[in-house]
Design a protein around this nucleic acid. Structure first.
Length: 487
RNA sequence: GGCGGCGUACCCAAGUGGUUAAGGGAGAGGUCUGCAAAACCUUUAUGCGCCGGUUCGAAUCCGGCCGCCGCCUCCA
């Protein structure tokens, strides 16, 4: 398995610290607002990585934190007129609502900064004792120049950073790039007792303290959005390695951004799409497929058109499963072998390997999805050739099972066609129940029996107008929700 | 200004030295169908931003140019 390591700037063979085990840490969110699609991407990327590592048999310990104390939270609390910890509690809940909907699994450990104050204080003490930090009034700063490797992740020298930086001059800092390990709190702000007076942790220190506590001083994978490379992860490396004297992380993984009109989606540009508003119009599985259709390190342009295309893709899977279910239910037992069988067998034989090769190559989900659609097409081709018997049944079932197995890693394709369509009815706000649709289909069947094509077609048109597409098959009339841009 | 990345068909997108450049969407034609829909088939890049170079051979490596983006400031 090869992973692109931001630290080395290339793909490297993945060798965990301890054979068969993987410790991984992903930077979570600061809980002060609703999550947007960019947070969703990061969460889904590391969700899939952890799922794939487990699929490959690794014993994975996955840690993803919540930053629940921070200046932004304090500011938000003032705006909303509620306590800071209430803000954190509220947006943690909202985070779970969005991420659960998107099928992002809980991490094994989900530590919060406020629950690790002793560990943070201990680390700051160590850094002071080792001479990597200094105290000014009630603040403690990390002295960047004391750490020789500073800049190795973001690949910049300190002089380069100084040249272009518009760093606010804080007279109390020995160097403008020094960053806060501990910040003194003003009257009324949340504060914890410390050897330096009442205060709160700086942003970067929590991730160092929590990852080391839960994964050890050196661990395998650390990740997050590409915008965390500098300064967040650079600072984490400095603090951690200065404090422990050991290498901090073996593989740094960073996901690319979501863009809108080719620009990075960000609060300051005001071009944010929240997960919530997207899920009002698209099924979560559609969002996952949309995001996983592009390699995790590449930028993804947010586009409703592309989401609609992803919707068509997902529908293609469920339509095929629906077709297979109907086909198998009425398939004769008489063995009928067709020439297409050989092609399907060959594709099926190499599918798992192909999927793993794609995922082994720096988690190439886009390629993996391509292979899944290739198999899907071959399954349809096979059915078109109208095979029958136990052999055919086994082959078709194996095909679906392979797709579902690969789908489990990406956490897509796990529902029944019925669940998919019922969910679409809800998402698209179609005020029809399954029973009502079935009743109309039965009425239409009567008309069709009587060869009253006009009436049959009018029922079909009426349903179509309401977003329901009917498909007459040998196995009866099936319904599905209209997807994509079809109108 | 410094550093990093990207540019593959109408759209999205995989591919980083060697069989016919994956896959999805859209369009066109066809098979099937009462008609549709779905599915399948054919079709849409002798070419991968442009110009050179290395090589028996390059989308893939090297150099230059053009265009776009990100980081250097909170940010997934």
């Amino acid at each position: 398995m090869r992973i692109y390591n931001t630290l080395s700037g290339k793909k490297e063979e993945f060798v965990p610290l301890e054979s068969g085990k993987v410790g991984m840490y992903a930077c979570g969110v600061t809980v002060y607002d609703y999550c947007h699609i960019g947070h969703a991407r990061s969460a889904i990327v590391f969700d899939v990585i952890s799922r794939y590592l487990r699929y490959r048999g690794f014993d994975v310990k996955f840690v993803r934190n919540f930053t629940d104390i921070d200046d932004k939270i304090i500011r938000r609390a003032e705006e909303e007129g509620i306590a800071w910890d209430e803000v954190a509690r509220k947006y943690t809940e909202e985070y779970y609502r969005d991420m659960d909907a998107l099928g992002v699994a809980r991490a094994d450990v989900e530590p919060k900064a406020t629950e690790h104050i002793p560990e943070i204080i201990a680390m700051v003490k160590t850094l002071l004792a080792k001479g990597y930090a200094y105290q000014v009034d009630g603040d403690v700063y990390f002295e960047v120049r004391r750490f020789p490797g500073y800049g190795k992740l973001s690949k910049r020298s300190m002089d380069e950073m100084m040249a272009g930086a518009r760093v606010e001059v804080d007279e109390r800092k020995r160097d403008p790039l020094d960053f806060a390990l501990w910040k003194s709190s003003r009257e009324g702000e949340p504060a914890w007792d410390s050897p330096w007076g009442p205060g709160r942790p700086g942003w970067h220190i929590e991730c160092s303290a929590m990852s080391i506590k839960h994964l050890g001083e050196t661990f395998d994978i650390h990740g997050g959005g590409a915008d965390l490379i500098f300064p967040h992860h650079e600072n984490e490396i400095a603090q951690s390695e200065a404090s422990t004297g050991k290498p901090f992380v073996r593989y740094w993984i960073h996901n690319g951004f979501i863009t809108v009109s080719r620009e990075k989606m960000s609060k300051s540009l005001g071009n944010i799409f929240t997960i919530r508003e997207i899920l009002e119009r698209f099924d979560p599985e559609v969002v996952r497929v949309f995001l996983l259709s592009t390699h995790y390190r590449s930028p993804v342009e947010y586009s409703e058109e592309q989401l609609l295309e992803a919707e068509v893709s997902v529908n293609r899977f469920y339509s095929t499963v629906m077709r297979i279910d109907g086909y198998l239910a009425r398939m004769p037992d008489r063995e009928r072998v067709t020439p297409e069988e050989a092609v399907l067998r060959e594709l099926l034989g190499g599918f798992r390997t192909g999927f793993e090769e794609a995922m082994n190559d720096d988690f190439n989900t886009a390629l993996a999805l391509g292979q899944m659609f290739e198999l899907l097409r071959e399954l349809n081709r096979y059915l078109d050739s109208r095979p029958s018997g136990q052999g055919a049944r086994g082959l078709v079932k194996e095909g679906v099972e392979r797709l579902r197995e690969a789908g489990r890693v990406l956490n897509i394709f796990q529902r029944s066609p019925r669940q998919w369509h019922l969910s679409l009815l809800k998402t698209k706000g179609i005020p029809l129940t399954e029973e009502e649709i079935e009743r109309r289909i039965a009425e239409r069947q009567e008309a069709r029996k009587a060869r009253d094509w006009q009436k049959a077609d009018s029922i079909r048109d009426e349903l179509l107008k309401r977003g329901i597409v009917l498909e007459d098959t040998r196995e009866g009339t099936l319904w599905r929700v209209r997807v994509g841009t079809e109108a």
